[in-house]
């Protein structure tokens, strides 16, 4: 099976600082492989090893995605090779643009049987790139997938629904978004990192791909800091739990919360 795993090179918003106007300063945040994407890699690796086949890492972003560090970090994961679309024109791209680029790259790779993505990216976290990607490719998509096995000409997946577990069979190529707990990713060791530099990487720019342009129907009017309720920040002494509990209950009854 030829499996593509889409991984994002992104920074954790928790390391960014937000100015009074809501402007975000990412300079202190160090990008890395987005939190949940290693789960997708693990899921893909296991499937590929079971069915025989390769796992190809695919990422789209600015030049940073193709920096030595970023390549090494990615390829030290359990990919066989990687295709990287690095173009600074993608700096401010939204989910639809990114998905369109990824779809074009999947076409470029050719004969792909399955695309697996993470649940959500650590920065945008919209959970939409995989589904738009599927739309671009005209393939079926399933999100929050817990496990996947190969069938002839397709896959069989399990996912948790609001009232249980559902087993689905998909014929032909598809896009799956792995649930955050679908697999336990392995941390790369020193040997993995050394091996990383020997894996083949194909670096592309937008010029190498045929990407449809997304309608510019949305613009930014402004940004703001989330308005936080003023909190009392009152600490209750807990040396005697019973006393503390009584104090809390009294306080909450006072405010009418109880």
């Amino acid at each position: 099976m030829k499996i593509v795993v889409a991984y994002k090179w992104a920074s954790n918003p928790q390391d960014a600082t937000v100015g009074a106007t809501g402007a975000i300063d990412w300079s202190r945040a160090k990008p890395g492989i987005s939190e949940y994407d290693p789960v997708a890699v693990e899921m893909a690796r296991e499937l590929a090893d079971a069915t025989g086949g390769e796992v190809i890492g695919l990422s789209a972003g600015t030049a940073a995605v193709n920096a030595t560090m970023a390549r090494k970090a990615a390829l030290s994961r359990r990919f066989d090779r990687a295709v990287i679309v690095a173009d600074d024109a993608l700096a401010s791209s939204g989910s639809t643009e990114l998905a369109a680029v990824l779809a074009a790259a999947v076409q470029h790779i050719g004969d792909v049987d399955l695309v697996i993505t993470g649940d959500s990216s650590i920065d945008v976290g919209g959970k939409m790139v995989p589904t738009v990607l599927a739309g671009e490719l005209g393939w079926p998509a399933i999100a929050e997938v817990n496990s996947v096995t190969g069938t002839d000409g397709g896959v069989r997946v399990e996912r948790a629904t609001s009232d249980g577990t559902e087993v689905l069979e998909i014929s032909g190529p598809a896009v799956l978004a792995a649930a955050t707990d679908a697999a336990v990713p392995r941390l790369p060791g020193m040997k993995d990192i050394l091996a990383a530099t020997k894996k083949p990487v194909e670096a592309l720019t937008l010029a190498d791909l045929d990407v449809p342009t997304t309608a510019g129907t949305v613009s930014i009017k402004g940004t703001a800091r989330p308005a936080l309720k003023a909190r009392k920040g009152q600490m209750i002494d807990t040396t005697d739990p019973a006393v503390a509990a009584a104090a809390l209950v009294a306080a909450l009854r006072g405010t009418g919360a109880l």
Binding site: G94, T96, E136, E144, A177, T214, T217
Partner: peptide, 23 residues
């Protein structure tokens, strides 16, 4: 925002090639 809805909405966004706004 549910997983199934997101799949339908993703297909719509792709077909019309228009932006998606989450959150």
């Amino acid at each position: 925002t549910g997983p199934s809805a997101r799949v339908l909405l993703g297909a719509v966004a792709a077909r019309m090639q228009v932006p998606v706004l989450t959150g």
